[in-house]
Simulated assay, not measured.
Amino acid sequence: MHTREEKLAAFGRLLDVQHRLRKECPWDRKQTFESLRPNTIEEVFELADALMKHDLHDVMKELGDVMEHVVFYSILGSEEKEFDIADVCNQEARKLMFRHPFIDWTGWPDDPKADLQETPDDAAGVEVTWEQIKQKEKDGNRTVLSGVPDSLPSLIKAYRIQDKARNVGFDWEKKEDVWDKVREELAELEAELKKEDKENSTRELGDFIFSVINAARLYHLNPDNALEHTNQKFIRRFNYVEEKSKEMGKALKDMTLGDMDELWNEAKNLEKK
């Protein structure tokens, strides 16, 4: 691994490269905050894919792409004389220091002070402390849920909403109690589906999914990761069915459901070996 000096030099090299691209590359010269946004979203999702696959080489590569966007936005900020990369780094460092008052920051620049000084003894305690301190920040979240980005994918957003509510005590007293709510929401969904009321069914479907996500959270399961594993499993098995159908000289649309189920079960059995 590299020394601290080597890491600082590498970051400086990235800054130099991006500054030069901004001046000399036709594509970079025309970019704005708004035009870069879709690319940034794509890069973050590519990083998320690499993390799910635990492909550490790709994780490294995608982290670089995300970091390049952070540097690029900072250059745009400096051009508007609003902020630069030093402001970004200092702001984040100060925020982290302020939210961890139980660590002795004496001697550090801008040594932060906070009212809450108790030292949490576990990760859950740190999360609760974190949410309480965020409410004290000068430019922090005005409400408990205001820190949840509007643009988050709905499944992840639901988990974050529930988790933030938990950090201020709004949660089930016993995790087992959540199953009554799940069953209640499922029954309400089934009732609306029988009525063929699409609007109410959509609303009840949302309530049911929200309750399942709540159950996953209470049992310390990440629903987004779980669903992505299932997505990948379905893709593998369906690809197997498609490949086998081609070997048999048949198009999928010409196969019976029974034929496809047989190939699907073959794929399942192969995964168990």
Rank of each mutant, 00 (worst) to 15 (best):
M1C: 06
H2E: 15
L14C: 03
D16K: 09
Q18G: 00
L21M: 13
R22I: 08
E24M: 05
C25W: 05
D28K: 14
R29H: 11
F33V: 06
P38L: 00
T40Q: 09
T40V: 14
V44G: 02
E46R: 07
L47V: 01
D49Y: 04
L51N: 02
H54L: 05
L56V: 04
L56M: 14
D58E: 14
V59S: 05
K61Y: 04
V66G: 08
M67S: 09
H69Y: 11
F72H: 13
L76A: 07
L76P: 13
E80G: 04
E82V: 14
E82H: 07
D84T: 00
D84M: 06
D87I: 01
V88G: 00
C89I: 15
N90I: 07
N90W: 10
E92H: 07
E92D: 07
R94P: 07
R99G: 01
D104K: 07
D104E: 03
G107C: 03
G107T: 06
W108R: 11
W108D: 08
D115S: 12
L116G: 07
E118A: 13
T119F: 07
G125N: 08
V126L: 06
T129N: 08
W130P: 01
I133K: 01
E137D: 10
T143C: 04
T143P: 00
V144T: 15
V144A: 09
D150G: 02
L152C: 10
S154G: 13
L155D: 02
A158C: 04
Y159R: 10
Y159W: 04
R160G: 01
Q162H: 09
D163I: 00
A165Y: 02
R166A: 13
N167H: 05
V168E: 09
E176C: 03
E176G: 02
D177R: 06
V178K: 05
W179A: 03
D180E: 12
D180S: 10
R183M: 12
E185G: 01
L186V: 11
E188I: 07
E190I: 00
A191D: 13
K194M: 10
K195C: 03
K195R: 15
D197C: 09
E199H: 08
S201H: 03
S201M: 03
T202Q: 07
R203E: 14
R203T: 12
L205Y: 11
D207I: 06
F208G: 09
F210A: 15
S211E: 01
S211Q: 02
S211D: 02
V212M: 08
I213S: 13
A216Q: 10
H220R: 12
L221C: 11
L221Q: 11
N222G: 04
D224T: 11
A226M: 13
E228G: 02
T230S: 09
T230L: 15
K233Q: 14
R236C: 04
R236T: 03
R236I: 02
R237Q: 11
Y240N: 06
Y240T: 02
Y240P: 06
E243R: 03
K244E: 15
S245K: 05
S245I: 02
S245C: 12
K246R: 15
K246N: 00
E247L: 13
M248G: 01
M248S: 08
G249W: 00
L252D: 00
L263C: 08
W264S: 03
W264I: 00
K268I: 15
L270H: 12
